[in-house]
């Protein structure tokens, strides 16, 4: 391996690492607020990419009926949740949020899809379709289990992942898609050729890290989320609804997932089940960051990307083994360093 190849591998690793970083950030976000290990995060990535690809092709994405269906289910779940205080106003509010909003997005997608309105609007429509799914999934699958143990939440998470993968196959079919790059530009830098697409990816990842940091340190809503993460009961006593915090974090995760999908779709072919492996690598990064620290998770994600890229050069048959083995020394170190915690709450 000479210096040029090493540089090329580093470049490839950093670009892929940026995607893993986005996944790791949303996993950390969701876990700290709700204690859910969000395995379906990868599905949001696949849905984002495939939704954009079908808009690109001028067809109505399969995620639109899914959004309407999930909205309907979430409406029922919300009504059941609020059954003791259900009045006309609450009902209207729930209907607006769970039924009218998806219907509006669906109508927009239906009008815009055949017209092929250009990449920017298609990306916005994609984000508008996938983002609400996060909140709906929380209402349907996770809020009723909010008091359950981490293990039960993990099992529910696996269940949602399997369901979403199956639905992905139904709606998008078995074959994958690619989309055109966000930018065709490329800049020579020494032996490297830096593509506009990779700059977009790294730039957006940094922007999201900055945005999350501002959100958590400067806004009341962000602070409410942190409060819920630190102590659910205490936050509740202070007037913060944990279910709202959960819903918000799921929506943010879905948004970041869909954005990752939009970013990765021009680089590789995305399939209905591509998301799982991407999500797992993001999970490795989040674990290295202790499922608590955003900067550590993001840095670990870049590291995972670089390990993966070098491993695929040196020993391609063992690439995944090497990437997932990287988690073991970190877990050992962490478990030796920290005192055992008996009570998880």
């Amino acid at each position: 391996m000479d210096a040029t190849i090493l540089l090329l591998l580093l470049q490839d690793g950093v670009v892929n690492g940026a995607i893993y970083a986005l996944i790791a950030l949303s996993l950390v976000l969701v876990f700290t607020v709700t204690r859910v290990i969000l395995i379906p995060q990868g599905e949001f990535v696949a849905y984002g990419a495939l939704t954009l690809a079908s808009l690109e092709a001028g067809t109505l994405p399969g995620t639109v009926p899914l959004l309407l269906g999930l909205g309907g289910l979430a409406f029922l779940a919300d009504c059941a949740e609020a059954r003791h205080t259900l009045d006309g106003r609450t009902l209207l509010r729930l209907a607006l949020r769970d039924l009218a909003l998806p219907a509006l997005v669906a109508a927009a997608a239906w009008f815009l899809a055949p017209a092929k309105p250009g990449l920017l609007i298609e990306i916005l429509v994609t984000l508008a379709i996938v983002t609400p799914m996060g909140g709906f999934l929380h209402a349907v699958a996770f809020r009723p289990l909010a008091q359950a143990s981490v293990l039960v939440l993990l099992i529910a998470s696996v269940g949602v992942h399997l369901a979403l993968t199956g639905l992905g196959l139904v709606f998008f079919g078995a074959e994958g898609s690619r989309t055109p790059p966000l930018s065709e530009a490329s800049f020579p830098a020494g032996p490297l050729l830096v593509s506009g697409q990779s700059l977009w990816m790294i730039g957006l990842t940094l922007a999201i890290i900055l945005g999350l940091w501002l959100f958590f340190s400067r806004t009341l809503l962000g602070k409410a989320l942190i409060a819920t993460a630190v102590n659910r009961l205490g936050a509740r006593l202070m007037g913060i609804a944990p279910s709202l915090a959960g819903r918000l974090s799921f929506s943010v995760a879905a948004f970041i997932g869909a954005l990752s999908g939009v970013l990765i779709a021009p680089l590789t072919t995305v399939y209905y089940d591509t998301g799982f492996l991407i999500g797992l690598k993001g999970f490795v990064a989040a674990i290295i960051g202790g499922l608590a620290s955003y900067p550590a998770a993001a840095a670990a994600a870049i590291l995972v990307g670089i390990i993966e890229s070098v491993a695929s050069f040196e020993a391609s048959a063992f690439k995944e083994v090497i990437v997932f083995m990287a988690i073991i020394p970190v877990l050992l170190w962490r478990s030796l360093r920290s005192a055992p915690i008996e009570d998880e709450e």
Binding site: I264, T268, V310, S312
Partner: peptide
Amino acid sequence: RYARTDTSVTG
């Protein structure tokens, strides 16, 4: 070698 779900085969 590479996997069906790989997102990059640059290496």
